[in-house]
Design a protein around this nucleic acid. Structure first.
Lengths: 159, 159
DNA sequence: TTAGGTGCAAACGTTTTGCAACTTG
DNA sequence: CAAGTTGCAAAACGTTTGCACCTAA
């Protein structure tokens, strides 16, 4: 499911809930779908405000909540105390590993672990709905590592 | 490492940082070590206040922070927006699965997944320091499930 | 005696809401 | 027109801190 499909998904959600289409929502959708990586409410608001100065924080807040309910975005927790989100891409689910030294975030998927999660859930009497797995590690980039800080996503590592 | 050892660990930490032993800290340590399951700052404060009405919220806050630094407790995130913690038991590390229907939390460990996590981290160039894995599922307790709400921990399920 | 600890109240940053004015369908 | 949406400002929330008064060592 690519960005185009997420747009469709949003339109479907709007229809199902009789939501109106406004310029604000268009701008916000645009910002979110165009975002690569993780974003906070503030991130989204700032970007939207750049394109539409009159937009209000509350609107960004409420719209992000709608995106959440529509399943367009999902909350993630990277350990800092801020609510962050990322676009839900069904074919692109991934987990995170965060370097405790430099804060670098690598996204990855391990098919084997995914399987085992379903299995374990079943064994415990659950039907798995979702999961979140965040690893912490120290990355071995040596002198390149410390404090390279939040850098753009380098893509999801599959395995 | 059982509760007794955690007490020793705390004493060692106090010594190393020249922390004084006060009645407040004793009460708070007691509350935390005696807690079965997950707790919030509020939980701890309330329980401590029951035993020592004059205790201040800030003291609970600051002390919990010390416990955190001392490695006695670890933050966990169960998806509600509240900071929660649990006692660190080195031989009892576990992950969580939360029922999206009733909120029931089951703790578990899967040795195979644990191994794979280390492996994956290495493959990505990290030395694994810690991990957090929270599954969401719908539990199959049928009529017994919905809204049985936060119940006491039923122990860690090993596999 | 003195470094450290406590309780209070206020500051903080973020998230959330009430409301009157304004759009969309 | 009616229902839904917006921006503002303020409330609510959990968390964190400054400070003057205590207390363990």
């Amino acid at each position: 499911m690519d960005v185009v499909d997420l747009g469709a998904q949003w339109r479907a959600y709007c229809a199902s809930r009789a939501l109106k289409s406004t310029r604000q929502r268009a701008v916000l959708l645009d910002v979110v779908l165009g975002w690569s990586g993780h974003f906070s409410l503030d991130d989204v608001f700032s970007a939207a405000a750049a394109e539409m100065p009159a937009i209000g924080y509350a609107t960004a807040y409420r719209t992000l909540k709608l995106f959440l309910e529509a399943g367009l975005i999902a909350p993630i927790d990277l350990g800092d105390g801020v609510s962050r989100y990322e676009i839900v891409r069904h074919e692109e689910h991934h987990d995170h590993i965060v370097c405790v030294g430099c804060g670098r975030v690598v996204e990855f998927v391990d098919a084997h672990i995914e399987e085992l999660q379903v299995e374990v859930a079943h064994r415990l009497g659950f039907d798995l709905v979702a999961h979140r797995m965040d690893l912490r590690g120290r990355c071995r980039l040596g002198e390149h590592c410390p404090h390279r800080s939040p850098l753009g996503p380098a893509g999801v590592v599959q395995s």
